[in-house]
Design a protein around this nucleic acid. Structure first.
Lengths: 206, 206
DNA sequence: GTCTATAAATGGATAGAC
DNA sequence: GTCTATCCATTTATAGAC
């Protein structure tokens, strides 16, 4: 029987491992916020957590693997925010309005997350299957929300995601830190609901 | 008096120079379309026009200078398309609808132009004053278009640019080559006009 | 105006000592 | 698990021959 009494318990090791991974991801978010999603290197990331670049490979297989974990984490963050906000709403309309507002606020507060999750900014990076499934959950949440309002039209849901990401993107791209577009989300929600739910003469598609 | 009878006329030289610059920019657009806006290097660009990388510096001061020229060119392209489409419209409403459609079609057909003009994808690149002025002209054109419809609200114009870029961005990011979001532009135009022009109970801003 | 050569730096990633 | 050292590819950019 191999001796293993002096080896620390595997659970402890894994816990520390996860802790370090978390630190690295936090530092990556910070660098992405400061210099853009692609504006940092592995050596800079290592320095940010008191490591050299090669040590990062103990925790991640590649830089794209880090992006993939950031992608998944960003999805979970947004899902958490949206679920919380939606849970607080008392009516479907309120849930819709507050959910939409939360989406834009999240994206504007975290431009790097917006770029990573909803824009194709990194040519080499494609999210893994598991990470992408989380992104689907976000739009799913939005679609369910609309269904509760009686909006079962998939096209309407698509138009709404486009509007929300559009507002956030314009805000972040043209006036970072401002509110020029972000403040329009309530107005957009109201207009969207007005044209989608009430007596709608279905516009003929092209 | 210095002899200069054997030197080719300056006009000829400049003409060739401009021709080469044009070739380089065309090749850059093609590379950007194939591999993403940032997915190519100067040596690849040089090879595409039968040059080595250093020779490109005869025509452009830096890679960012190339991006700046691409930015300006993209603006002029889009302005040309929009002006032509708008000129063909017979009523303000038709000009609005067709202009909106043309905007999205342009962006979907040229994702790299969309990224360069409306998204902040390259951390290091900031358009020059002259190039940015062209970008302003685009939104100006849109604003004027709306004014002809009696929409003088700046916020409405902002909401509309966000919607258009949002549709294009979602299309390009999530389903490149498809029509899922692009086909919604007419529906969005109609909804926007319905809520903005007709008896509008002004939604209170937050 | 184009080239070779090269600078000067940086990138991501691996090997192996400790 | 972290390091040094290093690989190898690649980058933008410059100098100088032709």
């Amino acid at each position: 029987m191999p001796r293993q009494q002096r080896r620390p318990p595997a659970a402890r090791v894994e816990e520390r491992h996860r802790g370090a991974r978390g630190q690295i991801l936090n530092a990556a978010w910070q660098l992405a916020a400061e210099r853009g999603l692609t504006g940092w290197s592995l050596s800079e990331l290592g320095a940010a957590v008191g490591m050299r670049a090669p040590s990062l490979y103990v925790y991640f297989a590649s830089k794209d693997a880090i992006y993939d974990e950031l992608f998944a984490q960003g999805c979970r963050d947004l899902l958490g925010v949206l679920r919380q906000v939606i849970a607080q709403g008392t009516t479907p309309a309120e849930r819709f309005r507050e959910g939409s507002r939360a989406f834009v606020e999240f994206a504007v507060a975290h431009p790097a997350r917006l770029q990573l999750l909803f824009l194709r900014v990194i040519p080499s990076f494609i999210p893994s299957e598991g990470s992408y499934a989380l992104a689907i959950e976000i739009t799913q949440l939005l679609t369910d929300n609309l269904r509760q309002l009686g909006v079962t039209d998939d096209a309407a849901a698509d138009l709404w995601t486009a509007t929300l990401t559009g507002l956030a993107t314009q805000q972040v791209s043209n006036e970072p830190g401002g509110r020029r577009w972000a403040r329009l989300v309530d107005r957009a929600s109201a207009a969207f609901l007005a044209t989608t739910t009430q007596a709608h003469s279905p516009t003929p598609e092209e």
